[in-house]
């Protein structure tokens, strides 16, 4: 069986995007996407866990009894999350403090157990790795986009707190797009996340709809040309 990596990539990033299409892992998605950097931090952490869990689940897939696969998968995921948490504690301590409970909560992110169950437990290691990576990147891109939108609307900055992820030199990365006396709290609070995510989903559906229309138009023209000939 040959695996179509191109389609795996497209599935993860667009057609079956965990955040925009599967609507999985919404809790961390909505809770920590209040700045670009927070979104990026959690996105990277989730991707790391997803890749690790996909590879290892795929590796042991022949030896895991069907009946108890879920607890085994969860235990493997939990160990990867613990590793990630310790790594963040060691290298990005400030971000670790900001993200707080949402790092251990990656264990309960349905995207990860979902990919383990639906893909990694049935496929060889390399495709599982690609699937995990692409799903993770798809999730991270949405997190980062949401974070950027909410940060710009909410406090008028971009890349605020970049030093928490990249070290103290990154403090100057923060861009003040506009200056306000009163922050637009709505965008920073959870309801703003729901609205922004809704708008992103609407935008994706619009793009898909347009692409479909275009495709059907083209095919009609082709058919028309053929019938003329």
């Amino acid at each position: 069986m040959t695996t179509d990596y191109k389609s795996l990539t497209k599935q993860g990033l667009w057609d079956n995007n965990p955040a925009l299409v599967q609507l999985l892992g919404l809790c961390p998605l909505l809770a920590v996407s209040n700045t670009f950097i927070n979104g990026l931090g959690l996105g990277i952490a989730t991707t790391m866990v997803l890749v690790g869990s996909n590879i290892s689940v795929s590796f042991v897939r022949h030896w895991v009894p069907k009946e108890i696969r879920i607890p085994i998968f969860v235990m493997m995921i939990a160990s990867f999350v613990t590793n990630t948490q310790l790594l963040m504690n060691a290298f990005t301590y400030d971000l670790y403090l900001v993200l707080g409970i949402f790092i251990p909560l990656i264990v309960t992110n349905c995207t990860i157990i979902g990919r383990a169950e639906a893909f990694a437990s049935k496929n060889p290691i390399i495709p599982s790795f690609v699937d995990g990576l692409m799903q993770g990147i798809g999730f991270s891109v949405v997190l980062v986009l949401l974070g950027a939108i909410r940060e710009i609307l909410g406090q008028g900055t971009l890349f605020y707190g970049a030093d928490q992820l990249l070290g103290s030199w990154a403090k100057q990365l923060t861009i003040q797009i506009y200056q306000v006396d009163q922050n637009f709290l709505f965008a920073i609070l959870p309801p703003g996340a729901f609205f922004a995510l809704g708008l992103l989903i609407a935008l994706k559906n619009l793009i898909d709809h347009r692409a479909k229309q275009k495709a059907s138009k083209v095919s009609v023209e082709v058919v028309g040309a053929e019938s003329k000939a």
Binding site: Q182, F184, L185, F186, A187, L189, P191
Partner: peptide, 10 residues
Amino acid sequence: VLLLISFPVA
């Protein structure tokens, strides 16, 4: 309500 929770001072 959007305004009330967003701009409590104003």
